[in-house]
Simulated assay, not measured.
Amino acid sequence: MTLEIITSDSLSPFRHGFFTRRGGASSGIFEGLNCGFGSSDQTDAVATNRARVADAMQVDLDHLVSVHQYHSAEVVALTEARQDRPKADAMVTATPGIALGILTADCQPVLFADPENGVVGAAHAGWGGAVGGVLEATVDAMEALGADRDHIRAVIGPSISQASYEVGQEYLERFLDDDPDNARFFAQGVAADKYQFDLPGYGLARLRAAGVQADWTRHCTYADPRRFYSYRRSVHDKDPDYGRLIATIRL
């Protein structure tokens, strides 16, 4: 099956893509393009999937770089390809030929591009990383490499949508403690003590407040199991594990 790659004109002319699960070598609950070595999927299948992504990005496999994500605001600036997967949740580079790869399964994959100055970035932004400032930290790190935030464009890829993201009272209070204006990202849930959180809306607001042009592809990972992996859906379905989607960009 052919790979399915979601792209955005906002990130042109850089080669990039939000890859769906279609076209991969994995099977069972991981069926498709699972790119997460952190899953319990067969290592050979994940390696094959990542090789297909590298080929689509027109780089050698060892130039498809990823990090050990842990919901932080840490950003790694790359001047050369590395395979040691440092602990971080975002990467930036001004070096041609390095494909930055972020893994997600409901969290926001965010790709950044400054076409005027030749700098790109990629970030994993779940609610914790977004609250912690990973999006702003990525923009700052791009500027340190010569980017200008007035020229930076950011695109949020397939993420869990508000309609599918129910949270509890303590979650709402955490956001209101950070900024009372965050109430606008919550809608009342079915139960009195439940709320629906707009993660992509929150990400867009943070990016735009940082002075960056930002868009969301408007794909919900939870609602479309044929195309996307979803951590939350796997929990609801009582699956033992879940696949990871990859989003990548290169100069």
Rank of each mutant, 00 (worst) to 15 (best):
Q83F: 02
T138Y: 05
S66L: 13
T104K: 10
T95A: 08
E136M: 12
F112M: 10
R149Q: 09
Q69E: 14
D148V: 02
L111D: 00
P96A: 09
G128A: 15
P109L: 01
L135R: 09
I102T: 11
E80A: 13
L135A: 06
E116D: 11
R85P: 05
Q108Y: 01
Y70F: 13
A81K: 04
V67G: 07
Q83E: 13
I102L: 08
G97W: 02
R85C: 12
H68A: 15
D84A: 12
A105K: 01
A137K: 11
T79L: 13
D89W: 07
D106S: 02
P115V: 02
Q108I: 11
L103C: 05
E74H: 14
G133W: 00
V120I: 14
I102K: 07
V92E: 01
D84G: 11
H63N: 15
D148Q: 06
A130T: 15
E116F: 03
A137G: 08
L111Y: 06
E143K: 08
G146D: 07
D84N: 14
G146L: 10
A123H: 06
T79Q: 14
I98K: 01
R82C: 11
A147F: 02
G129H: 04
V131H: 14
A125L: 06
L100K: 01
A125Y: 02
D84W: 10
V75D: 02
V75P: 00
A99R: 08
A113G: 10
D89I: 00
G97Q: 03
V75N: 00
A113D: 10
A137Q: 13
P86F: 09
L111M: 07
R149T: 02
H63C: 15
Q108R: 09
G97F: 05
A90L: 05
R149H: 12
T95Q: 10
